[in-house]
Design a protein around this nucleic acid. Structure first.
Lengths: 135, 135
DNA sequence: TCCAAATAACTTGATAATCAAACTAATAAA
DNA sequence: TTTATTAGTTTGATTATCAAGTTATTTGGA
């Protein structure tokens, strides 16, 4: 258990470094790409929910979103029922950035699992499913 | 492979959120705890190496380190052979913070793996070893 | 129904984190 | 021994962040 713990920490650390270098290549900031990631994988959402997912306040997010709108990556649309809220969603350019980032991730996954046999991949997948459920 | 990729991304995302909330409880910033983490798990090191591991410039690190020294978490000692360099290392208080954070991690690992059978744990551990080697 | 409380987003003012570039001191290489 | 490189710091500017206050809207009692 102790060694597994250390391996997870090391895995997380290496993934963070990889993410940082990949993001730097895009020319956007880590916070910006992270925002695009969340919108890309979960779809349009309100400011409040987005802020919660990103772990920042709505005040901070207002500024971030303003910049991403100017960059043409996202758009703000009024919420259909709740007029206090606005929905944030990706533009086609934002979607393209998300897809590009996703391809990078997929390539990484292929790279780091290339020495795993099919049975291990299967167990690994099931284990991740179970672990993700426990957070 | 595609689903495993998504599971890894989700795992990373949840781990990030967990880390953020755990760090917030300590009263220190994410950057500060991260610095302590690196020093705690790899031992004393030069500014340059520490900056590289953290993914920041030495200019930024100089400011960070100064604050951590004032907080009593780390100390600067001259490098024995290279007089351009200084070694950064944890104080006993810094070590205590690292140990505390490590215990949190261990607890998390125990929590998220509690529904995995011994054989899966074994395969999972071996898989992480192989994946970490490929980064 | 109507008003108080809660919620969503934004704004403002302050602080922390970051970088690039310039600088100093020391080492390495020619 | 010069010259080039490296380590760390400083400076000036920019970005990210928060807490607190503001406005508009919704919700939940009385």
């Amino acid at each position: 258990m102790h060694s597994l713990n250390n391996l997870i920490i090391e895995f997380y650390d290496k993934l963070s470094s990889w993410e940082l270098s990949v993001v730097k290549d895009t020319g956007y900031s880590l916070a910006q790409v992270h925002t695009i990631e969340v919108l890309g994988s979960h779809g349009p959402m309100r400011m409040k929910e987005l802020a919660d997912r990103l772990g920042i306040t709505t005040g901070t997010l207002t500024v971030q979103v303003e910049k991403l709108v100017q960059l043409g990556l996202i758009v703000r649309t009024p919420h259909e029922v709740d007029r206090r809220s606005i929905l944030v969603e990706l533009t086609s350019e934002g979607t393209a950035l998300h897809k590009h980032h996703n391809r990078m991730h997929l390539q990484l996954t292929e790279d780091i699992t290339r020495h795993l046999d099919p049975e291990s991949i299967k167990v690994l997948t099931q284990s991740f499913e179970k672990m993700n459920r426990e957070f």
